[in-house]
Amino acid sequence: MSGSHTGRVAVITGAAGGLGREFSLALAARGCDIAIADIADATAVAADIEALGRRTFVQRCDLSDAAQIKLFVEGVLESFGRCDILVNNAAYMPVTPFAELTLEQFRRFEAINVEASFLLAKLLTPGMSERGYGRIVQIASSTTGTPMPGFLAYVTTKMAGIGLTRALAAEFGGDGILVNALSPGLTRTVESEKNLPTELFDSVRDLQLIKRTEEPADLVGALLFLTSEHCGFVTGQTINCDGGVRF
C-alpha cells in the first residue's frame, strides 16, 4: 500500500494532536507531503513529519473563518502546487446541554464541522478534477447512530458531514475523486480524556465487540486505504471503525 501514496500532497485539518496527528505521520511515512490547518500550534507535528523526510506547510487557522481557510489554501497551493488528498478531521465538540445551547454556539459547530469541509472541497477539487485524481475523507462519528445528551449540535453537524460526503461523491464520481467518511467510536485522545468522564469510556468499551478503548492508531489502516490508489471503486460510503459498538 505504501507506493500508492508516494509523492502525494495531503491536506489535514485539526492535526496538531489526536487523530489528525496520527493521520499526518502515517501518510508522511508512506510518502506524502503534508499541509496542516489547526487553530492550535502544529509545529511539533511538522517537525516529526520533516524528520520522516517529507515537506510540510503549517498554518494556524480558525476553521470557522472562511477568509482564513482561503488564505490557508493559497499557502498550500503556493507551497506544493496541488492537493491530492483532503482529510476533514477537525471537529468542534464541547458537550453542551440542549437547554444551554444558543443559536450562536450551534452555528460555530456548523461552521467548523460542516462549512469548513464544504469550503475546502470547493477550493481544492478543481485541481483534483483537472488531474483526474483525488481522495476526500470526512471524519464522522459513531454518535450519529447513538446520540447522547449534550451532543445535539455535534451529532447534527456530524450527520450533515455524512450527507456532504455522499453528495460530493455524486458530484465527482466521474472525475476520479473518491469521497468517503470514516466513523470512529469513542477514541482516547488528550482532548477526549480532558473533556469526557472516565465512566463514559468504560461504558462504551463494554458495549464494543472489541473490549478495549479505541486509540488513534486503530483508525490509521482504514484512513490509509481510503486515501490510496487501492481505494479505486469505493465512494459515497461511511466506514465504521468503532470496535463493533452495539447499543
Rank of each mutant, 00 (worst) to 15 (best):
Q105C: 02
I39R: 11
H230D: 15
L77T: 04
G185P: 09
E74K: 15
A40I: 00
A37L: 15
T143V: 15
T235D: 01
R135Y: 09
G243C: 10
R54L: 15
C231T: 02
F57A: 11
F72S: 06
P197F: 04
R107Y: 04
E74Y: 02
S192G: 07
P97T: 11
L25K: 13
Q59Y: 08
L207K: 15
I210D: 05
V58F: 14
T213D: 14
T56R: 10
N180C: 03
G127M: 12
S2Q: 13
Y92D: 02
A26E: 09
Q208R: 15
I239Y: 10
C83P: 08
D218M: 12
R212D: 13
E115Q: 14
L86E: 04
S228D: 12
F151K: 10
T189P: 09
L19Y: 01
G132F: 06
G14I: 06
D65A: 02
Q138A: 10
G53Y: 14
D48F: 02
H5S: 06
Q237D: 01
Q237E: 07
L223P: 03
Q105T: 13
V45Y: 08
C83G: 08
L124H: 09
R60K: 14
M148K: 15
E215M: 15
G7H: 04
Y92I: 01
I85N: 02
S203P: 01
N195G: 07
G31L: 10
A140L: 06
T56Y: 13
A90I: 03
G173N: 01
E130C: 11
Q138E: 14
R82C: 08
T102H: 06
D218A: 11
S117D: 08
R55V: 09
P126K: 08
D65W: 00
M128T: 10
R246I: 10
I139T: 12
V137M: 12
E171G: 00
G134V: 10
C61L: 11
L71F: 03
T213P: 07
L186F: 13
A140G: 12
S4M: 04
G20S: 09
E104I: 03
L226P: 05
R107M: 11
E191S: 13
F106E: 05
P94M: 10
M148T: 14
T125Y: 08
T165V: 01
N195E: 11
